[in-house]
Design a protein around this nucleic acid. Structure first.
Length: 889
RNA sequence: GGGCGGUUAACUCAGUGGGAGAGUGCUACCUUCACACGGUAGAAGUCACUGGUUCAAUCCCAGUACCGCCCA
């Protein structure tokens, strides 16, 4: 017996720790800057430095790790670039909360001290998410880990900003933006989450001057009326065709505002009269520009009403709403209040209701950048997988609006712009200027805003590789091979990387974009803290092991469909890991030294069958991973390991391994066992890295890490496996015989300890040959006392019968047969055959089918019909015999 | 309002223009020398509904219903 060092059940925890450390120490994750091998690169979607590992990361990282480990086994020079994102608003919020606990705030600290505090926080907690990624087995090149606020990446950010500014693609202007009063900053359109809210629609009369009559407008935000600068009606609106008045009086403010005509106004909505508030509504802002209306900002950046709000100055915006409504009511100008379910924007970071607000901000003019990004995908230079996301990408790119990139927070890349306090000149530069280039004044004030976090993320594929320097790393690995991401950041991140990559590297950032699903809870709901349905990946890893968890994620990662995750499902795949473990344990008990694969003439039919199947599985697993069909790879390996290797081959190999068939057969079988286990481990390694590495080190002849093992088929030192359809067919026959006998045993309630005698009768020489050649095998697996193979029609009296392709099995049940039971079993089998025959008859009696269907299909149906007829006939005759015997009693 | 996806066994999901699949669960039997996180066998589905194309539709097309997501 060989070494038996493996425990009975697989214990993941120590194994995971041990091998992860080993991989890192051995430098197995490291990419080479220059190498003959084909480069393969992935940049990780950088998790927020404040992040804690969630299911989305787990899936994302698992899939990337599968690709990287697989490509390494194919001999590629793999770079998996890791890092974290400084996550401006999110991180600032976390640190501010911490300050609040200490009864202080950022304003008390001042900008510099606050930023120091953030860096301190990062030093203390910033590696948490990285350590969690390591628990998942992520094989990133950690030596190259980057952070979006690193000096190198900051330089890239400044360079990009300056260059875009000089090309006229960055500008500064007064526009309506989304303002979060809590975070005290502008937000990009994408950063606003819309949510349906039960609100009210207030109908307000704006009287004509000197009249009680007037126009009635409707609004969900009555406090904004204080900043109205016009009322608009549609020029095609019949109701206002004869309107003579040119102005109305703005209630509460006693200000006359003009009535304008603009086709934007919806004829169907409300009264058809629209109040226009250019400072607090994006559409009104556009109307205001068209009609050169003034903008009156009544809600301040602090969420309080401004001096422009007159008597309402200083009130909170929501308190003001109530007060405005009361005041209107008192003046009889509030016509009615309707309930209205409408969508309201919230800050994606803190969920505060955002306010459209007029403000001076920096913008990127994205249309020219988007055009290039569209072309690149249309030309196939970047492929989006699955392809249905391509249209979404185009739609968004075609309708893109300028990107507001300035944020009024402190944590982030400060905009490299200075204003001369003497002459007002704006200077945008990589390094701080000392004097004004226009007036030579020395009083320069730096812009206080920082950049949107996604501005630096957009540069990630090249900034992490050293750009703007022309590094070897960039030369080798840009463009990267694949980007793996969830569709939730397709616009935030992927689209912007495309634009920046094309603009600054003159090439796409990645060849493939693989868009994976979102992980939801077991009922399909989004996981969220407030719903309390969050499953913590680390708890799952603790309970079931990383490999089981990874395999579960992979098995459910079908393209274009969300994953519903529950711990129950992970449990099922833990059983699979344990099954693999025990199969290996069995094999290793018999393997003391590496055994060469014997030549074909020394192999049995089952040997040739499992080797042929191994070859197929190797090819299909490679194809599945190449095409990002991760679930197919997982399903196939599961099926092969459990239901082919374990269920059949291991059982079939036992007599030989235990020496019942001589040392030559034992050695040959060990050779097959070694090879199949060897290939299987390498195939599984990308999905389940830890357990496969652990087993690998017990496999005689396997050298150092499984991470250095070439993919099966790429290894020139091992013989090539060949497809063997003959052996596959013969093995299928043996399986049918064994299953047929087991079926009778099960259906007739005969315990496994009862040894049976079986006669196989067949007119087919091949079938008789195969079964006779593997008599011992059948006896062993079907638990028989005796097996006779014959061509004559000898029918034992008291027997149960199974009809398989071109053969009949008689299971002798002398003395124990229950004729009624056997008759019932046969009738059931006949019923099944009847159903099939009915369907086939119907097809064959259809002249159109015979005429129009392809020949191969017709031939197949005819063959099936003949087979089922034979089976039916045989079953009928057995039934008659059993009924006669039953009558005899 | 616009767009996208889903509806297949009790549950979770694969899948294909030509005989409906898996895992879990369920039932029966079995602690047989890798594994009870196991073995053997079994039961279980009008492939949401209505039309159409086709020799043939669970699959393609159109519409309906319900569920979910994204965008405005």
């Amino acid at each position: 017996m060989g070494s038996n060092l493996l425990a009975k059940g697989y214990e993941p925890h120590d194994v995971e720790k041990k091998w992860y450390r080993y991989w890192e120490e051995e430098g197995l994750f490291d990419a080479l800057e220059e190498n003959q091998a084909q480069p393969y690169a992935i940049v990780i979607p950088p998790p927020n430095v404040t992040g804690v590992l969630h299911m989305g990361h787990a899936l994302n990282v698992t899939l990337q790790d599968i690709l990287c480990r697989y490509r390494r086994s194919r001999g590629d020079n793999v770079l998996w670039m890791p890092g974290t994102d400084h996550a401006g608003i999110a991180t600032q919020n976390v640190v501010e909360r911490k300050l609040a606990e200490q009864k202080t705030d950022r304003h008390a600290l001042g900008r510099e001290k606050f930023i120091e505090a953030v860096w301190d926080w990062r030093a203390e907690y910033g590696s948490a998410i990285i350590n969690q990624l390591k628990r998942l087995g992520a094989s990133c090149d950690w030596q190259r880990e980057r952070f979006t606020m690193d000096e190198g990446l900051s330089r890239a950010v400044r360079k990009v900003f300056v260059q875009l500014y000089e090309e006229g693609l960055i500008y500064r202007g007064d526009y309506i933006i989304n303002w979060c009063h809590r975070c005290h900053t502008a937000l990009a359109d994408l950063e606003v989450e819309h949510e349906e809210i039960d609100g009210h629609l207030y109908h307000i009369r704006y009287p004509f001057p000197g009249s009680d009559d007037g126009l009635v407008v409707a609004t969900t935000r009555p406090e904004t009326m204080l900043g109205d600068t016009a009322v608009a009606v549609n020029p095609d609106d019949e109701r206002y065709r004869g309107l003579n008045a040119t102005h109305v009086v703005l209630p509460l403010m006693a200000r006359e505002i003009p009535i304008i005509r603009d086709s934007y106004v919806d004829l169907e909505f409300g009264t058809g009269a629209l109040k226009v508030t250019p400072a607090h509504d994006p559409n009104d802002f556009e109307i205001g520009r068209r009609h050169e209306l003034p903008s009156v900002k009544v809600i301040g950046d602090d969420g309080l009403m401004t001096a422009e709000a007159g008597a309402f100055e200083g009130q909170d915006r929501f308190g003001c709403r109530r007060n405005v409504v009361e005041a209107l009511k008192a003046q009889g100008l509030l016509i009615k209040i309707e309930d209205l379910n409408h969508s309201v924007g919230h800050c994606y970071r803190c969920k505060t209701v955002v306010e459209p607000n007029l403000s001076t901000q920096w913008f990127v003019k994205v249309k020219p950048l988007a055009a290039k990004a569209i072309d690149a995908v249309e030309a196939g230079r970047t492929k989006i997988i699955p392809p249905n996301w391509t249209q979404t990408y185009y739609d968004w790119m075609y309708n893109i609006r300028d990107w507001c990139i300035s944020r009024q927070i402190w944590w982030g890349h400060r905009i490299p712009a200075w204003t001369c306090e003497d002459c007002g000149e704006v200077i945008v530069a990589m390094e701080e200027p000392t004097t004004c280039r226009a007036c030579s004044g020395a009083r320069l004030a730096r812009e206080t805003d920082v950049l949107d976090t996604w501005f630096s993320s957009a540069l990630w594929p090249f900034s992490t590789m050293g750009w703007p320097d022309q590094t070897k790393l960039l030369k080798t690995f840009y463009p990267t091979s694949t980007l793996v991401t969830g569709f939730d950041i397709l616009f935030f991140w992927v689209a912007r990387m495309m634009m920046m990559g094309l603009q600054f590297m003159d090439d796409v950032p990645f060849r493939d974009v693989y868009v994976h699903a979102l992980v939801r809870d077991e009922h399909g709901k989004k996981m969220s803290k407030s719903k309390g349905n969050v499953i913590d990946p680390l708890n799952v890893i603790e309970a079931y092991g990383t490999d089981a968890f990874r395999f579960t994620l992979t098995a459910f990662a079908a393209q274009g469909r969300d994953i519903k995750m529950s711990e129950k499902r992970v449990e099922g795949y833990r059983h699979f890991i344990n099954k693999l473990w025990n199969a290996a344990r069995f094999a290793l008990m018999h393997l003391e030294t590496p055994e060469d694969l014997p030549t074909n003439d020394q192999l049995t039919v089952p040997d040739r069958w499992i080797l042929s199947r191994t070859r197929t599985v190797v090819e299909e697993t490679a194809a599945a991973i190449d095409e990002y069909r991760f679930n197919d790879a997982a399903a196939q390996l599961y099926q092969f390991v459990w239901h082919e290797f374990c269920d059949w081959y291991v059982e079939m190999s036992k007599p030989a391994l235990y020496g019942n068939q001589g040392e030559n057969r034992a050695r040959a079988t060990r050779g097959v066992l070694w090879r199949v286990l060897h290939d299987m481990l390498i195939l599984l390694h990308p999905l389940t890295p830890f357990v496969t590495e652990e087993i690998w080190h017990q496999l005689p002849g396997a050298e150092d890490s499984i991470m250095r093992a070439p993919f099966p088929g790429d290894n020139e030192r091992l013989p090539t496996l060949t497809a063997d359809p003959e052996a596959e067919a013969a093995t299928a026959t043996l399986m049918q015989v064994i299953t047929g006998i087991r079926n009778i045993r099960g259906e007739m309630n005969i315990g496994p300890s009862m040894k049976l005698s079986v006669i196989l009768q067949s007119d087919d020489n091949d079938i008789r040959g195969v079964v006779a050649d593997h008599r011992d095998l059948v006896i062993n697996l079907a638990r028989l006392e005796d097996l006779e193979v014959t061509s004559t029609g000898a029918k034992p009296k008291a027997s149960a019968t199974a009809v398989i392709d071109k053969a009949t099995l008689y299971v002798s049940l002398e003395g124990i047969i229950d004729f009624q039971q056997e008759a019932a079993r046969l009738r059931k089998e006949i019923g099944k055959a009847d159903t099939e025959l009915g369907k086939l008859d119907k097809k064959l009696s259809n002249a159109d089918f015979l005429e129009k269907a392809p020949e191969s299909v017709v031939a197949k149906v005819k063959r099936q019909h003949a087979d089922f007829s034979d089976k039916h006939k045989a079953l009928m005759s057995h039934l008659e015999r059993i009924e006669a015997l039953a009558a005899d009693g």
